[in-house]
Amino acid sequence: MLHSLRNTDLPLLQISEESGYESHSYFIRRFRKIRGCTPGQYRNRESRFPSG
């Protein structure tokens, strides 16, 4: 999952589904609890693909 966030531009919904989460909102909540940020924030901070 972290690899997908850092190294692809796949939609977060697709990453959450491929990670086994049936609920996109639950994926975001769990990610924030474990990592201290949302998946989108993590991607923006760690991505190899510059945004914009």
Rank of each mutant, 00 (worst) to 15 (best):
F31E: 01
S4D: 12
T8A: 09
E17I: 09
G20E: 05
N44W: 01
R30D: 14
R6N: 10
S16Y: 05
R30Y: 06
R45S: 09
L13F: 07
G40D: 07
K33S: 04
F31N: 06
P50T: 01
C37F: 02
R32A: 05
S51K: 14
Q14H: 03
N44I: 01
E17K: 15
D9G: 07
R6H: 04
R48I: 15
S19Y: 09
I28M: 01
T38K: 07
S25C: 06
G52A: 12
F27I: 05
L5M: 09
L12D: 07
R29Q: 12
S51G: 06
R30Q: 13
R43E: 02
E46C: 11
S19C: 10
I34A: 11
E22G: 15
S19A: 15
L10M: 14
L2H: 14
P39Q: 03
H24E: 06
S25H: 10
I28N: 03
F31G: 10
L13S: 13
G36L: 04
I15R: 07
E46S: 02
E46T: 02
I34Q: 14
Y21T: 06
F31H: 03
N7M: 09
Y21P: 01
Y42N: 07
E17R: 15
H3N: 09
R30P: 00
I15Y: 04
N44L: 08
S51M: 12
G52S: 14
G36F: 10
M1Q: 09
E17H: 14
G20F: 06
P50Q: 02
G52E: 11
T8V: 12
T8G: 10
D9K: 15
G40R: 09
E46A: 01
L12N: 08
T38H: 05
R32D: 01
P39L: 07
Y21H: 12
S51I: 14
F27N: 07
Q41T: 12
G20Q: 09
S4W: 13
R43P: 05
R29C: 02
D9W: 02
F31W: 00
H24P: 00
S23C: 05
F31D: 02
L2K: 14
E22V: 10
N44F: 03
R6K: 15
Q41V: 12
F49D: 02
F27P: 07
R35W: 10
Y26D: 08
Y26N: 14
G36T: 05
P50F: 04
S47R: 11
G20W: 05
Y42M: 11
D9M: 13
R29H: 10
L10C: 12
D9A: 11
S4N: 15
G36N: 01
K33F: 02
I28C: 08
R6S: 08
Q14N: 02
G40E: 08
E18I: 02
E22R: 15
F31L: 12
P11A: 14
G20R: 04
Y42D: 11
F27K: 06
G52C: 08
G40A: 08
K33E: 14
S4M: 13
G20L: 07
L13T: 11
E22K: 15
N7S: 11
G40T: 01
R45A: 13
H24G: 00
Q14G: 00
S23Y: 03
L2E: 13
S25T: 14
R48A: 11
G40S: 12
T38G: 02
L5P: 02
F31R: 03
S19E: 05
E18Y: 05
K33Q: 12
P50N: 08
